[in-house]
Amino acid sequence: MEEILRINGISKRYDDITVLDHVSLSIKSGEVVVIVGPSGCGKSTLLRCVNSLENIQEGEILLNGESVNPGNKKPAALRQKIGMVFQSYELFPHKTVLQNLTLAPLKVKKTGRKEAEEEGLKLLERVGLLSRKDNYPSQLSGGQKQRVAIMRALMMHPEVLLLDEITAALDPEMVREVLEVVLSLAKEGRTMLIVTHELQFARAVADRMVFIDGGRIVEEGTPEEFFEHPRTERLRKFLHSFSYGE
């Protein structure tokens, strides 16, 4: 498998607070990398840097060998190739479900309306929301909104998909319907960089696990090594904080 995304020693600072400290990560095409870590460790910031929503002070981010650091290239061109889904769904409230899906293809890629709508309907059918195509986001449940948001990102045919704690705002019974969509994307070979607190899900979906603490990558490895034989004390402690009654 060839490398698709390379994060090369990036650092992110706000004034004198270092959020990311020389983080390096390489992601191969079709690989699913799951990042976990305590709140405020910098994992969401890392995703935002990859998508140029944050600028970085040091290092370099390469997509297919091309530098995508802010300033080097128009961020809009880069973002077309990198899809992102947010914790709070962020569907456009004044547009219907189908319009949410077709807006970017129509405006950015100049896809024909018919073609965009056909693809949108196909994706809605895939996540069981075809009957909701003319509803507004406010008429959907959180889980439905998030499934629409994932499909909206897919409409741009991104090479990499960034998922930023996409189940964190959901009621527990809706988490599964969203994670099943992500699992099916993993099965069809999508390249994904996922930040989550759902460790069981992480284990099921990940090809590789990454543990970030204090702005640095502390440990990374296969899900098996990661969960069964954590090498560092910090990761052991972190994993332990999720278990009860032991």
């Binding site: 077309q80 947010f86 970017a104 950015v108 990102a153």
Partner: peptide, 15 residues
């Protein structure tokens, strides 16, 4: 309008 609305639109590649 929440900042994330703008960010989600930007992340779809919109100018």
């Amino acid at each position: 309008i929440p900042a994330a609305q703008k960010e989600s639109a930007l992340s779809l590649g919109m100018s």
